[in-house]
Design a protein around this nucleic acid. Structure first.
Lengths: 98, 98
DNA sequence: TTGACATGCAAGCCGCCACTTGCCTATCGT
DNA sequence: ACGATAGGCAAGTGGCGGCTTGCATGTCAA
């Protein structure tokens, strides 16, 4: 889970990048919290379902991990999949066929 | 030229990532050289026009720079636009609204 | 100059992605 | 139990991106 392609696909959408920004600022938010804060900060009136699908993509890429508690589902950022990305061309790592 | 969005859009395509790999290994190749080497290494039989359009996208993102010499056009990788990308979430840089 | 080589331009097709819409399940407070 | 809250599932739609196709331009060798 979380191939190189998945990570890039997750990062190509500007809304998903803002979600990562948001989780980077305040980790462990619920879906509704993220919706509210995105609407406040960026005048981004994305629907709940849209954000939910974005979170699914981020989770599939391994960039977001979740923990269920009762009726809440909290989302946590995981930057681990980002490490090999820039290493690929900046530092000269052997070659990592995807 | 070369906004944050442009860089991510350029990186989302696996063929464009392989082009960057190729230029990272041997900088300053022409279009036909790139086509030939991609076909050899990855059995990627992409057409010349397809690769040309990919190079346009990479150039628009600032990831590739070109120099014309006669009927040849040489392509050079430029990793500068990659630097702020992972810095955005890995190291904690102030906030860089795109 | 003539032909081959290296690249550029533009229109069209097709598949994927983000978003909506509608309904459903599950959990908490009272 | 009941309503409200938090979230999930799935089909349908519109737009954009990658690729093809066909032709045009420019450059070099003989």
């Amino acid at each position: 889970m979380g191939s190189v392609s998945d990570v890039f696909k997750a990062l190509v959408d500007p809304t998903r990048r803002k979600i990562l920004d948001e989780l980077s600022e305040k980790d462990g938010q619920s879906l509704f919290e993220i919706c509210a804060r995105l609407a406040m900060k960026y005048q981004l009136a994305s629907s709940r379902q849209a954000i939910s699908q974005h979170l699914d993509v981020l989770e599939a890429a391994g960039l977001v991990e979740t923990r269920r508690e009762g009726r809440y589902k909290f989302h946590f950022i995981n930057t681990a999949p980002l490490e090999p990305i820039v290493d690929r061309w900046l530092r000269r790592i052997p070659k990592e066929p995807e």
